[in-house]
Structure formats: structure tokens, C-alpha cells
Design a protein around this nucleic acid. Sequence first.
RNA 1: GCCGGAGUGGCGGAAUGGCAGACGCGAAGGAUUCAAAAUCCUUUCCGGUUCACCCCGGGUGUGGGUUCGACUCCCACCUCCGGCACCA
Length: 869
Amino acid sequence: MDNGRYDFNAIEKKWQDYWLSQKTFKAPNGAPTADTKSPAKPDPKAPLHLRPKYYVLDMFPYPSGQGLHVGHPEGYTASDIVARYKRMTGFNVLHPIGWDAFGLPAEQYAVQTGTHPALTTQKNIANMRRQIQALGFSYDWDRQVDTTDINYYKWTQWIFLKFFNSWFDDTQQKARPIEELPIPEDIRNRGEKAVRQYIDDHRLAYEAQAPVNWCPALGTVLANEEVVGGLSERGGHPVIRKPMRQWMLRITKYAERLLDGLKDLDWTESIKKLQADWIGKSIGAEVDFKVDSRDDVIRVFTTRPDTLFGATYMVLAPEHPLVDALTTEEYKQPIADYKEQAARKSDLDRTDLAKDKTGQFTGAYAVNPVNEQKIPIWISDYVLISYGTGAIMAVPAHDERDFEFAARFGLPIIPVVRPEDETLAAQVESARACFIGNGTAVNSGPFNGLSTPQFKEKITAWLEDKQLGKKAVNYKLRDWLFSRQRYWGEPFPILHVEDGQTLALSEEDLPLGLPEMEDYKPTENGRPPLARAADWVSITLPDGRKARRETNTMPQWAGSCWYYLRYMDPDNQSAAFDSLVEKYWMPVDLYIGGAEHAVLHLLYSRFWHKLLYDLGYVSTPEPFRKLVNQGMILGEDNQKMSKSRGNVINPDQVIADYGADSMRLYEMFMGPLEAAKPWSMRGVEGVHRFLNKSWRMIVNPDTGALQDAVRDAKADEETLRILHQTIKKVTGDIEHFAFNTAISQMMIFVNHLSRRQVRPKEVLETYVLLLSPFAPHVAEELWQRLGHPQTLAYEPWPAFDPMLTKEKEIELAVQIGGKIKDRILVSADADEKEIEQKALAAPKIQTLLNGRTPKKIIVIKSRLVNIIA
RNA sequence: GCCGGAGUGGCGGAAUGGCAGACGCGAAGGAUUCAAAAUCCUUUCCGGUUCACCCCGGGUGUGGGUUCGACUCCCACCUCCGGCACCA
């Protein structure tokens, strides 16, 4: 910085060093008092720990070898602007960052090279931290968390133990410690083993032998959420169904609360809907169908009990437990063949809608409870064992899938709902069309004539009365498959004792660290890599029994489910976080991240949070009050950035060429935060020119001293007005995340003041404060050159005077019949009468009206006048 | 197929019932310069008349509607992007 030009590289280095060494953004923990939880008025002069809190959270990144891409700084800049703004308005701001550092790439690299994943991970973290620090975000670096740090995952394991040692009380709708689980008398009478089994069956973390999504290419199982169209979300490899012993988390118990909790969240409706659809609540009835000439009963779930009279056959999932018992001798072989075929099918095959429906008759019949009709029982893979009861009543006239199936196998179609539309009604009547909407009941005995909703209510009551069925609710949400066959993840604090008992480590035994390994591949017989660590796996208990450690590890989601809690108290050795500290900081006031986590991470986090809430560890029922999703940044060719397209923008290069402030400012100026938008290097140059102009407005580029125009002078009226308009606009736009228009307004301000030969120092200082959340480095430097030795990070945010934002005289458009014909100048406080008279007196209006009297005159103050002739 | 979101100059976008195109990019012309870069000034939705000032008409994916007035609200359709996909 030898001369006065805008030397962004030197300025940015200087202030980044200053912020780090001064710990400018260190946020002290406060106490949860009335003042800090619901402040009457934040005080920008109060000591930080006595101020009201504001928690701004970024979705922490996976430290990949590729480093940062331009998408990261978008969300991070937006949250940083809010964090800096909130600090200046008097809040104690918690703004942390960390590393979601377990994950497959480091492990795959380890398999290939033998390098320990921890080494790769730490190297990548160091690089990404350098990149993130080069952008000047106001993180409190003393609060960094790293999910692979044993001091962190100790507590991830601790939370897992909470799941393991809890059950869900359906009547109270909350989790409770497993010790409080009531054991039924008959179970207790059957002995200790039965009791143990009963307890294990109620834990919120449990083991199950279940068909899972196995991905041979990745060598691991995947959660339902990680399988997209039968392919793995990561890499797009085929996924097959395979029965395996796996750890599950009982998220389904929380379905209702996860759905209900969405109501009060300040999230976009589209994200809430995505989660609600994923939870997939449907209300209907369970109905029992007796099997003809047998004692068995098949229970089905239906959302349309009003169509019971139209049920002409039943379908069971091939895996349904009654299938073998029901099947008549004659059909044993074809049923066995069909089951075999269905079991072999991959998810991709099973969900392929294009294919024809398949199925097989069992030879057995059921009795329709409403009319005693005998209907055939089939099996088909279009009925899923994992939803509802694994069996359906088929109503081909009013369900498209049943209609298709009936058509293919020549099963009868009986219409029982008559649609409003006559043409459609005729088609439904003659079984040529399927109608799934609401209508009027027909062919339904005593219920004929009822509307669909009325019928539903009546028949449900009728079924309950006759004890043939009852109202029921089902969810699409499935339990969360929580184990992976990998090395680089949190080990489960679980022991399998030789006598078959599953034992959890006690809290005092945590953390359970990962063993050192030489070979990170799965074993030859397909067991997880940890099975190779013989010394680690085998253990003798104090009572002499031998046991084996669980060799699966937790999925990557585990660490990210609760990291926002650890930030509050990252160095706590005796607890995951202190309870008072939690009460001070929670909930997260603003959470910014990509929409790709709409279902997975956000649903899992909410689930964990609710468990911790039930057990009394956290004080809020929901973790994230407001959620904002940044849009994707596309390449200059308007395509998704990818190496193969060669359109990837490297943030390091942009920072080197234009500076971090320009990078930040450009990413905010591109367009609305939530929108997808293409990169433009010309655009970066544009905002860079603006920063340069801001610099030259204040600093003489030849001497480095302040410009001669910078004086201790009173601002003229116009300058004052534009300044106050700018304060108003920038403040409001930050509150509404409209950063692009805030920047436009600052450009208007600079365009105005740069032309002035007198630039009052006070006005410039206010401007620098407004600019500072967006371009903090140059703002700090200008602030210093304007004579302030301290950082501006805690300066009070400028206030505007509404009176000063108003123009004295306004130009109004005068329309005739909605078309602009002339303009008039009126004073800002002119009343309607006055405006009307002025408008009518305007010369062109006079000519056009030509003496006619207007029918109506509409005056919109400060906007326009519309004359209806 | 179903559910979201979006369609505005050459480009990114602004305006959520009241003067369409703020701000930026690009382009054109001019000033400065020996020259260039940088900077500054002017013009820049389309068409017509014509740029000396003007003036006239059209215009926000398409077609209809509501309204004194529609980019904005309603109906139908088209296109693009994202999500879900046999959940009974």
C-alpha cells in the first residue's frame, strides 16, 4: 500500500490478519435472561455477553480435495452480511463454521493409497479453511468443529446411546428413558430373555434383519433417501434389495411431530411441502377381510373406505406373511416362482412405471365384509410390504393401478362412485374409465347417494361398530437405516456378546475411537473394513464373557445432525454442551444452505433435536427458526458447472484477480439469493469498478491521502436525501435478503456523491458503514483512513430519518383512460383536490379533453392521476 | 404422470395492482491521452416519422378475463428448471 490506489490484495490480507489476531468476531456465551432472549431494544454499546443473541448458521462444508467452489461463498456471504449487520444493530452474534469431515472420498483414497483418511481430511480442511478465511467471513474461529475429531464424535456416540436407551411413549408422544418402559405381565412371566427382547424391540435405535438398499459398487447399504430412482444418489450406481442385519433409528415414531412442527417454521412453503410429502401422511381406515373357509384375516389399509363395495379382488405384497399359508395346492409352484422373481428384482425394476403390471393368483378367496362377496386374492409387487399392512383391497373402477391390473388379468370392475361430469360418468359406468375423484355413491347398498366425504365418515363408523375396521393413519416415512459398511465414520458404541445379548457401552466408556488400519478395504467375505481390526473387535467383558464390537459405522448424516449444538460450547469436556449456554443461544435464528438438503439433513436434524428435547437436553422443539436456500450458480454458458463441461470458476483465481470484496459483492449482486443464476466475469469487473469508485470517492489515488472534496461540511439537501434513502433501502433489503437491490442503491449513492465537489465526511462515514457487511475489507480500510483506529464491526448501524427520504416536489403522470398523456409537478404534501386541479389544467390534457367534463378522476398520491373522459 | 418454481431489452436483473426496463454488463459516440489502459460525459426496449427538439404506435411466453388501471390478480395453454414417482 505504498500509494493511494485500491490495492485490494494488500488491504484484504491486512484486515484478515487483524480480525484473526484481534479475535474481532469472538462471541462470548451469555446467560439466558429475559433481556437476551426477547430484547426490548438491542443496545450496540452494551458488553457482548449481555446483549440479545442472534445465531446465524451456515451449512458446514464437506472438506473435499477439490476445495471451495463458487457455490459455497454465495450462502456464506449472505449469512455473513446478516451476521455483520446484526452485530452492528446490537446483537451478540454466534456465527460459526466447521467441517462435515467423515465421508467416502477420503476412504476411497485410503483404499487406493493406504493414506490414513484422517491425514487426507486434515489436509483438505487446512486448504478449505485458507480459502474460507480469504473471503473475510466473520466466523468465530475458536468455535470450529470437525465431525471426525474424537472430541466431537464422542458426543455423536453419546447421542446414539440416547437413542439406544430410549423408547417412544405413544400416549405421551415423546421419547422416554428405556428404564421407564413398562413391561407387560405376560412378557415378564416368560423370563429374562423375553424381557430383554421386548426392551430391544422398543429402543429408538434397534437392529433389524430387513431387505435394504445394497449398492455393490459402493460396497455399502444406503438409506431410502439416498436412493434416487433405483440408483445411488452418489455416483448413480445400481442398488439392489438384499436382506441384511442393520441398525435403524425409529424416526417413524416422530412422523406426526415432524409434520406438525413444520407449521411454525419460517421456511419457504416449497421446502416445508417437500418434507411433508416425504413424511406422507394419509388418513383412511383399516379393514379386515376374512379369508374364505379359513380362520385367517387380512387387514388392509385404504384411504377410500367409501369404495369398499367396488373391491373386486385383493392383492398382497409377495413378502406378506400369510401368502404361503393361503396359497392352495394348485398354485404353490407359480406363487413360489413369482415370489422368487420379485425378490430378485432391483429397486429400479420394481419402480419402473413403464412396465406392465405382473401378479399371480393364490387360489384363495376373501370375503368382502360389506356385502359378503367372495373375491380372489392375488399377489403382486405393486403392493409394497413396507407400507400400510402390505395388503390392499383392489377397487379397479377408482384406482388407476388397480384398473391397470384388472384390465391385464381380466378381473371385474364395479363402479361405485359417480362423477359429476356426465360424459365421464358414462365411461365409468361402462368400466371404460377409472375415476379417482370425489362423487356420489352408487352400487353401494344402503349408502347409495352419499357424497364421497359423507360416505367415508359413515362407513368408518359402521366398520368400527361392527368391529370390522377402524380409522387409521399411515405415513410414507420409513425408519432410518443408520449403519454403513465403511471405515471412515463414527464407530457404534455397541458390543455383541457371545450369548447373543447386544450391549451398549456406558457413557463413561466413550469415546470409542477408530482403530488404526493398514488396509481399508472391506473383508473378502464382504464384512465392513473394521472387521479386519481383530484386536479392536474382540473384547472380554469384566464378567468374563467374550464380545465383538459392532463393525458397521454411522452414516455421514450423523455428525451433521447436531453440529449446530456443539458450536455453542465446542470445548466442553464433560457434556455435549452446557444447558445454560444452550438456553442462551438456541434456536438458530437463521440457517442458510443449499436446497439439496431439503429432506435429508434437515429432517434428520429435526428428528435428533426432538429426541434431545424429549430427554430435556435442549429447550426448543425445533432447531432452525428461519431457513433460506441459496440458488445454484451456473457456468457462464448457463449450464451446471462441471469439470467435463470446462465451465468451472475457481474462487481462488477470482480473489487473486479482483479481490474477496469483489467476489462477495458480485455473488450478491447477481440476482435474488434463492434463484439459480449464471456466472459472468464481466459482472465481477462491474462490481469491482464500483468498489474502485467508492475508494476514489474518498481516497486520492495519487497521494493516498483523503480527497480534497472530503470535508467537515454540512450535506446539501439532495445528498442528504439520497443518503437517507440509501440507509432505508439497504437496511430493509438486508432484512429481506434482497442483497442485489441493496447494492444497486449503494451504486446510485456513489454515482451521485462522486460527482460532488464537496463530500461531507459524516456522509461518507455512514456510507462506509452501510457498505461494510458486503465488502468488509475495503470498508475497514476506508473507515481507518477516515480517522477511526478501531474496527467498524461494532459501530452502531446507521439510522435514517423518514422525513429526509422524501422529495419536496414530485412529478406525477397524468393519464387519460389509463394512457399517459402528460406530466405535472406537485409539492409532496399536495392534497388530492390540488393534484386533480393541476392535472386538469395541464396544457395537453386541456387539448385532449377539449372541453368535455371527465366522468371520473382517480388520484393516487405520489404516483399518478387517471382521468376517465 | 403428479407437485413446486420460473418465463421481462443483446445479457444478469428491477418494479408484486399505479410512469415497465432501476442498477450492472455489453454496445455506440464523445472528452482526456503522443497512444493505450483507466477515468469522465452522452446514447442504448422495438417500430414509425425522424433524430434539432419532439411526436405517434406497440411492448413483460401465448390466448382470454377482472379492473379506471395488470409484469403483478383469475382461467386455459406453451416452454424451461427443480422435486417426487406403483405409498393403496
